[in-house]
Amino acid sequence: MKVALLIVDMQKGCREETPCKSAFDSSVEYINEISQYFRKKNYPVVIIKDVEVGSPGSEEFECVDALAISDNDIVIHKQHCNAFWETELDNVLKNERIDGIIVSGFAAEHCVLFTYNGARERGYNVFLLQNGIAGLDEEEIRRIQLLRPIVNYQALEYFL
């Protein structure tokens, strides 16, 4: 299975709107570890940015400074909660022959969940990244992870 890591909406404007800033910051640390592992193994890392957070070039639109980004990462701009809706994401993943997706990022209750569902609807094997999901409500994050398959660093290391 060829797998891609999606990093959804880890933007400065998103961090500012969440009351769960420490959970957001913790998820960045975990995402950084996983993304470095993906890059080392030559698996795609896709940075997804929401244009509703701010216009491209604005401070709010940029990813948080703590997020590790590579020039080789694929960047997708989206207008809807589902990163597959009216974007080139599905075509990009198909061109890379991706059949598995790990979804991480913000907000668990919205864009992460909708992107997860969009990937499932398109036939991908999809998992949420344990400890790599941030949101507006920590209890809701736990509920979302209880009801969907999650994967952690050790499992990814074993399977990849």
Rank of each mutant, 00 (worst) to 15 (best):
K41Q: 12
V46M: 04
R148G: 05
V92I: 14
Q154C: 10
A155K: 10
K40N: 13
Q79Y: 13
I74Y: 09
S35A: 12
C111L: 05
E29Q: 10
Y153F: 15
Y37I: 13
T18E: 02
S27Q: 01
D90Y: 04
A68K: 08
E88Y: 06
L128C: 02
F38Q: 05
H110P: 06
E52T: 15
I34N: 02
S58R: 01
E62I: 07
D65L: 09
Y43K: 12
N125F: 11
L147D: 15
C111N: 04
S70M: 09
V51Y: 07
E140C: 10
G118E: 00
L6R: 00
V151G: 02
K21E: 15
L156Y: 00
A107I: 09
A83N: 05
G105Q: 04
E109G: 07
I150L: 09
N82Q: 06
E121M: 13
E140Y: 12
R97Y: 06
V8S: 05
V51E: 15
F127C: 01
D90P: 07
L67G: 09
V103D: 00
E96I: 07
M10F: 09
C14Q: 07
D90I: 02
E17I: 12
I76W: 01
E17N: 08
M1L: 13
G57V: 10
Q11N: 07
Q145H: 09
L156E: 00
D50A: 04
R15I: 02
I74G: 09
I144Y: 02
Q11R: 03
F84T: 00
L67A: 09
G13S: 08
E96F: 11
I47V: 15
D25Q: 08
N95L: 14
G54M: 05
V92R: 05
K21P: 08
Y116R: 12
D90L: 06
I48W: 02
N95P: 04
V103F: 05
Y153A: 14
G54S: 06
L156Q: 00
V103L: 03
N91D: 15
R15S: 04
A83G: 11
Q11V: 10
A68C: 09
L89S: 01
S104Y: 05
Q130I: 11
S35Y: 02
I150P: 00
I144H: 04
G13N: 07
D137L: 03
C20V: 14
Y153G: 11
K41H: 13
R120K: 15
L160A: 06
T115W: 03
F114T: 11
F24V: 04
V75T: 15
K41L: 11
S22Y: 09
I48L: 05
H110S: 14
L129F: 08
P44R: 04
Q79M: 15
I7F: 05
W85P: 03
Q36S: 14
E139K: 15
D73V: 06
L156P: 00
I74A: 10
I133M: 01
A68L: 13
E16H: 07
